[in-house]
Design a protein around this nucleic acid. Structure first.
Lengths: 195, 195
DNA sequence: GTATTTGTACTGACCAGTCAGTTCAAAGGA
DNA sequence: TCCTTTGAACTGACTGGTCAGTACAAATAC
């Protein structure tokens, strides 16, 4: 292909990282384009050259991050048995949030916002995530590990909510806990509430 | 308590409702004091007379709403058996989100934001909510319905996350489903993933 | 007669987005 | 080899609008 998209990519990535850093330290509310540019060591105009608008930047960042997230989840597709499916779904999600905690924050604070310009993008990407989860839950159901009356869509939502909230709590309140420990708590819980 | 000046309460409530209406229709991002005052049919100065600042208004609204939420959850305290505990926790939460969907939106989009002025308030109130959940989950554990190795704190987080996400999805995507149906999906799911 | 509300006009900070100008590496002559 | 051109990438001072918060005198409740 073309000889050097490397340069373009570098600037965009610097801006992504700067944005995530600022979200982590100052929060989404006080995120200004001036700050992002300064943090990235780049002129404000560069942001507009590369992304067109602040919304464009956030939109691209969301796509970028959710693609990484989806990749982690797809690890579950390679699972061989039922226990492995759930363990990989939950573990993959936790891995992602451990690696990009600021992204979790960004995701959670934007996902259910009513009208933002990038709401459409988000719902699209959310569908991608939950469809991966739904597919794996359907496998679980086929293996007889999920009662047939359970609505897979609801289950996917519940799984997503559980993992996101537990991951955020983990990062914020008990970061000293290991990933495996947190993952196993969730798995144990999911198998543990019985009749 | 002191005899309540009904009038003050009325104005404050009008402002709460107006704020929730605007959050529902236009989102949190474009929420202005001028709009809120207009929506409530009140002068801008009145907002400042009653709440001191925009943050003061949001802060008070958050306290107000989370207190209502906590009340719904406390219904679980009156549960007699184990199944009833979970059903009331989940049902109470869903009831609340069905009645005040805008509040769910507000809650979710602000809860994990890093530094906002009212973040401290939110975490305080969040503790109130999860401590109610923790107490009930401990009861479940005492009744032998939760494996002793399950960390109650994690379980409370998971339950909270599940209910919030499922409730938001319900309101946004399938509002035609009945509350009982959604509640039962969640309960079924919680009891359904087995070894 | 005190507490609350109104209406209008104002200030000043803040910030997304613009744009005329700069930099520089590669392409293309001569 | 040296000059010229091209254009993509980048710069940062500037603009224009928005909005939280203020001021305050008059009106209206309680």
């Amino acid at each position: 292909m073309s000889t050097r998209p490397a340069r373009t990519g570098a600037t965009k990535q610097k801006l992504f990282i700067a944005t995530l850093n600022l979200v982590a330290s100052k929060g989404m509310a006080s995120l200004t384009v001036d700050d992002i540019a300064a943090e990235a060591g780049v002129a404000k105009g560069t942001v507009y050259y590369n992304f067109g608008s602040k919304d464009g930047l956030i939109d691209a960042l969301l796509r970028f991050g959710l693609e990484l997230f989806a990749e982690r989840l797809r690890a579950a597709e390679r699972a061989t048995d039922a226990d492995d499916i759930l363990a990989r779904l939950v573990g993959g999600a936790l891995e992602f949030f451990a690696e990009y905690p600021a992204f979790g924050q960004l995701l959670v604070s934007e996902l259910w916002r009513t009208p933002g310009q990038w709401h459409k993008t988000l719902n699209l990407l959310r569908d991608e995530i939950t469809s991966i989860m739904r597919a794996q839950l359907r496998r679980l159901a086929d293996l007889g590990r999920l009662p047939p009356e359970v609505d897979v869509r609801t289950a996917a939502g519940a799984l997503f909510g559980t993992v996101v909230v537990v991951a955020m709590d983990w990062q914020v309140f008990t970061p000293e806990r290991g990933l495996a420990e947190v993952r196993d708590s969730i798995l144990l819980l999911m198998r543990g509430i019985r009749e």
